[in-house]
């Protein structure tokens, strides 16, 4: 640094041999790199290799990393060492949220990275990066301790690319909070986009179920009354018919007759039937339906019986 002092002349003569001029970022990153404290947190098989990486043969203290902290408040590296299950991911995201910035995540092994051999399982999350930002992926099943050490070195290299001026965690607006998923009938990601996806899927399925459901007919109150209910989507009943079983009387719905979704309509039958309320249908039959055992069917435009029911003979 002698040339520096000679050009600026700022440092006193007696200190000129002892001053090192560098950037804040270099010092900041050097200090962070070699005092990275991982959390004592093991999920599955990979955790054993993580433990072993700390023992004499691999000795991760060479990288200043042996101080494993059981509390997330004191740790700044979360190593996802194993299969992430739906039941566990809730806790993992909570732990991540409790860690102080700057914090880093290493996804160790095939399972944490993408589900690994257990990806197809019903309780397995296919990769922690669906929920947390991951800095370094370490491949392997399980990765050897050497591979994990390489992951640490890769993370240190990442530090060197960061600058104290641009890192997000010193910004006032930054929270770094990650939405915590919840356990419902399945795991539910609480990211707004993911929630919307769940709802869309459910709506689609509900609509599909409803469009499959046809109008249903049943006996109404009072003799000779039939109720048509539509639990499904709104339907046009043009060319649909109501038919009785034995004497083959048929009622044709008027053209353009529409039955709303969740709507119902009453049909009054008998020779001189009248409608007591607007909107009801009058079907002038020879005899009020239901006076004797009789089957009534609702037949669609193609001639398929959609719904039918049978009157028990009513003794008046």
């Amino acid at each position: 640094m002698a040339e520096n002092t000679s050009t600026t002349g700022a440092a006193p003569e007696e200190l000129s041999e002892n001053i090192l001029i560098t950037t804040v970022d270099s010092v900041y990153n050097l200090a962070r790199s070699y005092s990275l404290w991982p959390m004592t947190f093991g999920l599955a098989c990979c955790a054993i290799e993580f433990i072993v990486a700390g023992t004499a043969r691999y000795d991760m203290s060479r990288f200043g990393m042996e101080v494993a902290r059981p509390s997330p408040r004191q740790a700044d590296l979360l190593i996802i060492s194993g299969t992430v299950t739906k039941k566990m991911v809730v806790s993992i995201v909570r732990l991540y949220n409790q860690m102080a910035e700057p914090r880093y995540v290493i996804s160790m092994g095939a399972c944490a990275t993408g589900g690994g051999p257990f990806k197809e399982g019903y309780n397995v999350v296919s990769g922690i990066d669906k929920f947390l930002p991951v800095d370094v992926y370490v491949p392997g099943c399980p990765p050897t301790p050497e591979a994990l050490l390489h992951g640490f070195i890769t993370l240190h290299k990442k530090f060197k690319t960061q600058s104290v001026r641009t890192v997000p965690w010193y910004r006032k607006t930054y929270t770094g909070e990650t939405p915590i998923p919840v356990l419902g009938p399945d795991i539910i990601d609480t990211h707004p986009a993911a929630l919307k996806q769940v709802r869309d899927v459910n709506m689609t399925r509900l609509m599909a179920a409803r469009s499959a459901a046809g109008p249903q007919i049943s006996a109404g109150e009072g003799q000779g009354t039939i109720v048509i209910r539509n639990p499904g989507l709104t339907r046009d009943l043009t060319d649909w018919t109501l038919q009785t079983g034995d004497d083959g009387e048929t009622y044709h719905f008027p053209a353009g007759f529409v039955l709303m979704s969740d709507g119902e309509v009453r049909v009054h039958t008998s020779s001189g039937a009248t409608s007591s309320s607007a909107g009801d249908i009058v079907w002038p039959t020879a005899q009020a339906i239901g006076a004797e055992t009789e089957k009534v069917s609702l037949v669609d435009a193609d001639g398929n019986a959609v719904s039918s029911f049978e009157y028990e003979a009513i003794t008046s």
Partner: peptide, 14 residues
């Protein structure tokens, strides 16, 4: 328990 239930038996049947 069940935090590491990774469906060994279901996968095993496939």
């Amino acid at each position: 328990m069940g935090y590491l239930h990774r469906n060994h038996e279901k996968i095993g049947e496939r």
